[in-house]
Every structure is written in C-alpha cells, then in structure tokens.
Computed example of a mutant assay.
Amino acid sequence: MTVRPYRHRGELVELPSHVQKVAQRTVLVLTDRIVCPPCGPGRGKLRNRASFFQLVEACKGWAGGLPVHAIAYEDLLVFRKPPRTAPWPASSARRFGPTLSCRDT
C-alpha cells in the first residue's frame, strides 16, 4: 500500500509509521518499506511532483511564517500474512487445566 506523511495544522504526521504499527497489531508482517519519490522528467532533470494539497499546505506554512516544504516522497509498505502455524496438539489442552461449565458450580 502507498502511504505518505502529511501535515495537520502545520505539524508533520508520519502516517506510514502509524499504518505499519496498526498492521502489525492485526497480525500482518511488514515485508518491505520502499521510499517512492513522486517525480517526473522536466527540463532534463527529475522534478518533484507534489500533489495540490501538499503545495497548498506548504503555501499556508510560508504565509504563516513557518518555512515548510512539500513532502517529496511516499512509502510503499508491503505486508504479508504470517505463515500458518500447525494447530495445537490435543495434549496442549491439558496444560491449561480443567474447564468448568455452569452445571459444575
């Protein structure tokens, strides 16, 4: 999945790291994190291709006296499901002790 940091009220929000943490809580395994600069050719050089919203936030920052720049990258996060584990052996149920039902009390 591609995710990019963004600015909220002038503060940089490192969204790729947040997404990575949430994915790991849901048992996904991060396989790779690749930096992808959104750029293209222009006048013989690679030029930043910032989104409209990035440029607007940068302009707001400069107008407010905060020298911020458009974010020049996004992250490609590659996740996978963890490998399947073998089911618990029947003997493992004995380790947890007896179970009680409502009728036992």
Rank of each mutant, 00 (worst) to 15 (best):
M1R: 06
T2Y: 15
V3N: 01
V3T: 06
R4S: 14
P5Q: 11
P5W: 01
P5D: 14
H8P: 00
H8C: 07
H8V: 12
G10S: 04
L12W: 03
L12T: 12
L12F: 01
V13L: 07
V13D: 02
E14S: 08
E14N: 08
L15G: 00
P16E: 01
Q20D: 06
Q20I: 02
K21L: 09
K21M: 07
K21S: 12
V22H: 05
A23K: 00
Q24C: 07
Q24Y: 00
R25E: 13
R25F: 12
V27L: 14
L28P: 01
L28W: 01
L28I: 04
V29T: 00
L30R: 02
T31W: 00
T31C: 05
D32C: 02
D32I: 01
R33M: 06
I34G: 00
C36N: 13
C36Y: 10
P38Q: 00
G40I: 02
G42F: 01
G44F: 05
G44T: 04
K45F: 08
L46W: 12
L46S: 11
R47N: 06
R47I: 14
N48E: 12
R49I: 10
A50W: 06
A50R: 04
A50H: 03
F53M: 12
E57F: 02
A58R: 01
A58N: 00
G61A: 04
W62A: 14
W62V: 14
W62S: 09
W62D: 12
W62G: 11
A63M: 15
A63L: 15
G64K: 11
G65H: 09
G65S: 09
L66M: 06
V68G: 01
V68H: 10
H69N: 14
H69D: 13
A70G: 09
A70L: 03
A72T: 10
E74H: 09
L76F: 06
L76M: 11
V78Y: 02
V78F: 01
V78I: 14
V78H: 03
F79L: 06
F79E: 00
F79K: 03
F79S: 00
K81H: 12
K81M: 13
P82Y: 03
P82V: 04
P82I: 07
T85W: 04
A86T: 13
P87Y: 04
W88Y: 13
W88E: 13
P89V: 06
P89S: 12
S91Q: 10
S92K: 07
R95V: 08
F96L: 15
G97V: 02
G97C: 05
P98S: 09
S101Y: 08
C102E: 15
C102N: 13
R103N: 12
R103S: 12
D104Q: 09
T105S: 10
